[in-house]
Design a protein around this nucleic acid. Sequence first.
DNA 1: CGCTTTTGACCCGCGC
DNA 2: GCGCGGGTCAAAAGCG
Length: 535
Amino acid sequence: MDGRGGAAAGLTLATASSLLLTSPSHQIQPMDSDRHSSGIGFTDASVAEASTPPPRQKRTVVISEMDFFSNEKKKMTMTSGASPDVDLKVPSLCIKKEDLSVNTGLHLATTRSDLSTVDDGMSPPEDDKEGKSELTAVQAELARMNQENNKLRLMLNQLTTNCNALQMQLVALTQQRRTSGNPEAPGNKKMEEKGHDEHEGDAVARRQRYPEVGDIDEPSHSSTTSRDRCLSLRSHTEVPLDHEKHVGEDDTEEHGWNSNKTPRLASSKSAEDATMRKARVSVRARTEAPTITDGCQWRKYGQKMAKGNPCPRAYYRCTMATGCPVRKQVQRCADDRSILITTYEGTHSHPLPPAAVPMASTTSAAASMLLSGSMPSGDGPMSSNLLARTVLPCSSSMATISASAPFPTVTLDLTQSPSPLQFQLPFPSAALPLSQIFGQTLQSQSRLSGLQMSPEMDPAQLAHRKAQSVAPPSLADTVSAVMTADPNFTAAVAAAISSIIGGAGNHRTGNDDNSHSSANTTSCSKQRREPDLFQ
DNA sequence: CGCTTTTGACCCGCGC
DNA sequence: GCGCGGGTCAAAAGCG
């Protein structure tokens, strides 16, 4: 197994555990049985005794965990030496605190031994001197841990800021290399011409078809460079900078579907955007569920029989925000109908719920890299290998590039199981909880963000390392890289924590909060009415 | 009633 | 120009 992914998951667990035990609003609760059916990490948990046992009675909390990358269920028992009243059994932390402390400059105290002393909210009688002193100690410990949590939060913010700056530099360098280094690359030229042609052609066609959008001023192509940078820096937990700007400024927003239809893309956005939308990321997953659960809300808008495949292809568009250009196609593999192929296209133009961040970020990052200077020749073998290794470095067979297709496509194959990073659906009837591959996607993001590149290749990273006087790569270094690589790391951690705290079954945490919307996720709707898609 | 899904029709690009 | 296939639209139907 790749240690980076494990580190990421371990960090997540560590943070989650810490929050679990220190936040009064997140007390350990017995999990519903149906929560076993999905989600991240924990597959079963139980409270051995009632949640409100009589005082002084020994209480035991057992939490089982699922190792993110080995699918191996573990059960860690934490016996409390300091508090005789409580046995806290919490998930193990996958990384050592000394590993975490190196680059963050913080020493995590929320290890097992520390956690074991946390008060579970039920204190011993006041007349017990020993209990009093224990209580004091526990409270002090609690305060200390809260302080450390705050420190970590601040550190995380700082890392995020630094990461953004680094990404800026990286993308700028990439752009420079693309524009000055190999401007005449055939693939590049071809792609640009194609994009341009399509842009022009589509614009004309769309004007004919949707005359109301024909008068919209098209953005100047001279702004492409800065736009490129913004595109590559798009964050899936934030509204993309340029997109947000255009959505806000664009007077096409009032045209209903105009704002969330292709015509808008073709007529009001640059050729680069059109090309961006053409990039596709295909995810192959073995599941019996009609769709994979990626945290977004989708609305089906069409279904077609595709040539060469007896299974129909369904078309969905993102409905989390009007104007979101993201589409996805869902189709069973003709050769193996247990494999579901989900193809994503476009970049979300709205904030995403934490549960949607991993998949959205991964697909967007793959698409960005596919279309960025990281693939100078577009369809060259080197670039294919680079991206394949970049997307899923643990196995070159897991990520493939299809440049011969009408659209450049990255395929993430999650159906092959030899790697511990991959998993078989443990829940045959459940939609695939993509948050389960949180660590994997986060890892992919890290790679895609370029921060796993060797220092020689990335001066910015080198400078960053030097500035921080960081030792040669280690597990801690890797953890740091994972942390710093993703500006959405906070959201990703939040997603993981939410998944754990809210019960693993609730991988739609963010959506559930959207009580204002009556829209259901695809999977939810499918449960309501059995589709005819894959009969 | 509002939202989603279904499904036939339509549009477009491409190859011949 | 024509046919084919992919993609999308939009009215109708279904559902809670």
